[in-house]
Amino acid sequence: MRRLLLTSSFSATADRLATFLEGSPRNHTVAFIPTANLPQGSDGYVQEARRAFTDMGCQIDDLEVSTADPETIRRSLEEDDLIYLSGGNTFFLLQELRRSGAADLIRQQVDQGKPYIGESAGAVVTGPDIGFLDAMDPRSAAPDLESTAGLGLVDFRLLPHLDSEPFAGVTRKILDRYGDDGPMVAISNSQAVAVHGQCLTIL
C-alpha cells in the first residue's frame, strides 16, 4: 500500500507525522533529498525541515541525487526508513530524479509501502504531471527536462501554498487556469495530505 504525506511546509506540519505513521518516528532514518532547493537563493525551509526531523528523534541520511553515485542512491532509498523530498524548483527536481535513476527507485520503494514525505516541490512531483506549476516555478531551471509527467504516485495534482504568502496570488491564478483540467488538491502551509492506498485525508 502506498503511503505518502504531502505538505506545503513540513516544519509547519511535522506534528502530523506520528499520526501519518501511526506511531512515533523516533529512531527512523530519513533519506533526506534537498535537490529541489539547489536552484533557489536560500535554504531556510530545508534547514527547518532538517531540524523538525531531528527534534523528533530521526536520523538524517543526506542524499543529494544530482551528485550522488548510483550505489549511494540505491542504498539510501532501499535501506532508510523514510523518504523525504524538500521544496524548491519542481522542474529541476523532476529532471534530476530522472537523470539519476532515483525516480524509478522511489516508485519501487513507495510501491512496497515505504513512507514518502514530500514538501512543496517534493509533493507536487508525486502527481501525474507538474506542468501546471509553471506560474510558480521557472522551467528554465531544468533545461534538460523533456517531459513534465510526474512520478505518478498519486492520481491528483497537489497545489501547495494556497493563500499563503508569498504565493497567495499565484496559487489562485493556477486554480483559475488549471483547476478544471483534472483532480487537484490545494493546501495551505498549515495543511497536509495523507495518502494511504486509495484513502486521502487532509490533516
Score class of each variant (00 low, 15 high):
M1K: 10
L5G: 03
L6K: 03
S8A: 09
L17C: 02
L21H: 00
P25G: 04
N27R: 06
H28K: 15
A31E: 12
F32E: 06
I33E: 14
I33D: 11
I33W: 09
P34D: 15
P39L: 13
Q40E: 15
Y45F: 15
V46F: 05
Q59C: 08
L63Y: 12
E64T: 13
E64F: 08
V65L: 11
A68F: 03
A68Y: 06
D69H: 12
R75K: 12
E79V: 10
L82N: 11
L85S: 10
N89S: 08
T90F: 01
L94C: 07
Q95M: 09
Q109S: 15
G113E: 14
S120Q: 12
A121I: 10
G122I: 12
T126H: 11
G127N: 07
F132S: 02
D134K: 00
M136K: 01
M136L: 07
P138H: 03
P143E: 05
E146T: 15
T148A: 08
L153P: 15
D163A: 13
E165H: 09
A168V: 08
T171W: 06
K173R: 14
D176H: 13
Y178I: 07
D181F: 04
D181I: 04
S190G: 09
H196R: 14
Q198F: 00
L200G: 00
